[in-house]
Structures are given as structure tokens and as C-alpha cells.
Nucleic acid binder design. Structure first.
Lengths: 180, 180
DNA sequence: GATTTATATATAATGTTTTATATATAAAGG
DNA sequence: CCTTTATATATAAAACATTATATATAAATC
């Protein structure tokens, strides 16, 4: 799947592995993230499959950049993928819930401390979605002149916002439940 | 992490790989799922680490069962893990959002069809959480006489409910957005 | 002046997860 | 009667993802 995230970005403009890591961190990390090492190895695999090509861009006083460009085959592959409907629900993995499920023997105070910490983290995250992420989308929309595309980007930001609000609500309910 | 899901269940009662797969499917699949093959290989690894022990339970007219039992070391490991706080936010992967993010070139009707399909799937899922999952928790609570533990199980079910309601709300918003 | 952060790529080793396959029998459904 | 579903375990192969490490320089911060 990372494959398509990378092709998706390269379909807008050429980019290095370093660029792509940063792009993902500020835009898709809400619903798709990757480590640097995976991005670099996946780009290499994409080039082997001729879905992208790269060339070295020499730099003075900075390490040289390997800049990737999507090929026609890459664009086709990407379009095929986006047209393919998803017919199931995505399954989640939530370590916190797993731990909670098996925490009956723990002191309630220990659980409560953890839930309160999570609340702080999610409140900070919510603010990021409402300020930084919103701003980043605006910036890209105007710098790339992609107001139409930005509407879709905004829906994914909105998901992050709603999700985090839901999470905080669930934490509040659960905290109250354990306190009472 | 699957390791702790398995230890967590075995801390309640002995079980075979087959049992554990079924248990997870009806209880934790909302926040932690695993394939049969991973469960069997992880159980084997746990036994190698002496966190569980197994013995064969012969059956007539059914394949023999390999029944696992948690060891004292396993119980300690589990307790250490539950006591260890999680200090970050869990990151999600949502294929649908990734696809949507890069779907600007697609016909809006194709996107809308997909979102409407997802709405149906999530509505069915919501009903499951509100009926089947709720009932399963009640059953386990009374058959194991674990009313206190069941309160925690219920909070995880509630997460699934809230999450799915949120998802449907986001789908509604997004559908309206693309229609308008 | 020393440390940290940012720029930039690359790969080895390890860990996690999925897909696929093999085997065998009984019960249930069409 | 035939097919599917349920019971039950096991492993190989592949795909996906994380952790760790190496290298090098400039800018920013303490």
C-alpha cells in the first residue's frame, strides 16, 4: 500500500525519498505513515518495476538528492488502484484497548493515570489537526493550485478531527466509569 | 503484541489455538485481530519461551486438540506488560482514506458509490456491536462469573460503537460534500 | 565551544502479518 | 448424493514494517 502513497505524491510532482517522508508526515500520517527505511526500499522496488525513474541531483554543501519521477506505467497502476473499490471494513489495532481488555487485575488508579495521559495526548493531537494540518492543506492547495484536490485532502483531515474527538469522548466516558 | 492477547486469554482459562482464534474473533477483533497461522506460530514461540505449556487432548471423531496453559512466568510477563503505560498515540492505517486522498482524477460518482458501500458496511457493523458483541460479553461475564472484568470488556465494545458511529458521520459529511 | 537538528541516502537484521497449502473427518444443508 | 461448513493443527513462502546503523556537512541552539 505504501507503494500507492508514493505513486500518489509523485503523480503531483517529482520528489526525493527525503521529500516524500516529510510530505507523508505532514499530510497522510493521519491515515498512512511509513518509516524512512521503508520509503527508501519501496522507492527502489518501484524503480525496479519501472513505475518510477530516478536521477541524482547534485548539491553543494548538502548531500546529493535522488529525485524520483512517476512513469506512464506508474500513473496507470495508480489510476487502476484508485478505481478499485474497497469492499470491506478496515480492521484496527489499538494497543491501549488490548491492554485495557486484560487489565482487570490492575489497580484502577494505574489505569486511570494511563487514560488521563492519553487524553492529554489526544487533545494536543486534535489541536494539530485543527491548526497545523488545516494550514498545510491550504498552503499546498494554493502553491500547487489544486483547490479541487484540496477538498478531498480536507475530508481526510476532517476524519482525523472526528476520530480524535470520538477518542476523547470515549476516554472521558471510560474515566468516569472507572472513577464511579 | 499478539503474544499478550494470547497470554491474556490463557490467564482466564486453558485453550487451544482453535479456541483462541474464535475467542479473538468474537471479542477483541474490534481492536486486535490475527490470522489462524499467526496464532499457531505465536503459541509455539510462547511455549519455547516457557510462558505457556501445552499438552495434547485426544478426541474421538474430531482432530486432537493441543491445549495451552499459561505458566507463572507467563502470568508475570502479562502483568508487567499491562502495568507498562503507553505514552504515545496509536497510528492508524486506513486504505480508504489513502485512496480518497489521491482520487481527485476519478469521477465523483465512482467515489460516491464507494462511500455509500462503506456506509452500508459500517451500519451493519454498528448493529453487530450493539447486539451480538454486547450479548457475547454478557455471556462470558456470567459463565466465567467475571462481572468486574466485564466492565472493562464493555468499554472496548463501546469504543467500537463510538468509532463506527463516527465513521458513518464522516461518510455522511463526505458524501454530502461530494454531492453538493 | 559543544551539542543538537536538519539535510540526505542506503542497507542489514529483525519482527510482524498475510497468503497459501496440506491433512482428515463429521455434521449440516441443498 | 454432493457440497459446504465446522472441527483442528501445522508450516512454508512471501509481503510488509520496524529498528538499528553508517556516512557527511551545515546550520541552529545551548
Amino acid at each position: 500500500m505504501l507503494k500507492y502513497a508514493l505513486l500518489g505524491f509523485l503523480n503531483y510532482q517529482t520528489a526525493s525519498g527525503y521529500d516524500l517522508k516529510q510530505l507523508m508526515d505532514v499530510s497522510t500520517s493521519n491515515f498512512w505513515h511509513a518509516k524512512q527505511s521503508q520509503i527508501y526500499t519501496t522507492l527502489k522496488a518501484l524503480e525496479k518495476d519501472a513505475l518510477v525513474v530516478s536521477h541524482i541531483e547534485p548539491q553543494e554543501s548538502r548531500p546529493n538528492r535522488r529525485v524520483y519521477e512517476i512513469t506512464t506505467a506508474g500513473q496507470e497502476d495508480l489510476k487502476n488502484w484508485t478505481a478499485q473499490p474497497i469492499t470491506e471494513i478496515e480492521s484496527r489495532k489499538e494497543k491501549l484497548l488490548l491492554k485495557l481488555f486484560f487489565s482487570a487485575q490492575l489497580e484502577p488508579e494505574i489505569i486511570l493515570t494511563e487514560l488521563r495521559l492519553q487524553k492529554n495526548l489526544h487533545q494536543a493531537q486534535l489541536e494539530k489537526y485543527q491548526t497545523i494540518t488545516k494550514e498545510v492543506i491550504k498552503q499546498f492547495a494554493s502553491s500547487l493550485d489544486m483547490q479541487e484536490d484540496a477538498k478531498l485532502w480536507e475530508t481526510t483531515r476532517r476524519f482525523g478531527e472526528l476520530y480524535t474527538e470520538m477518542y476523547i469522548r470515549w476516554l472521558d466516558e471510560t474515566i468516569e466509569n472507572l472513577e464511579g
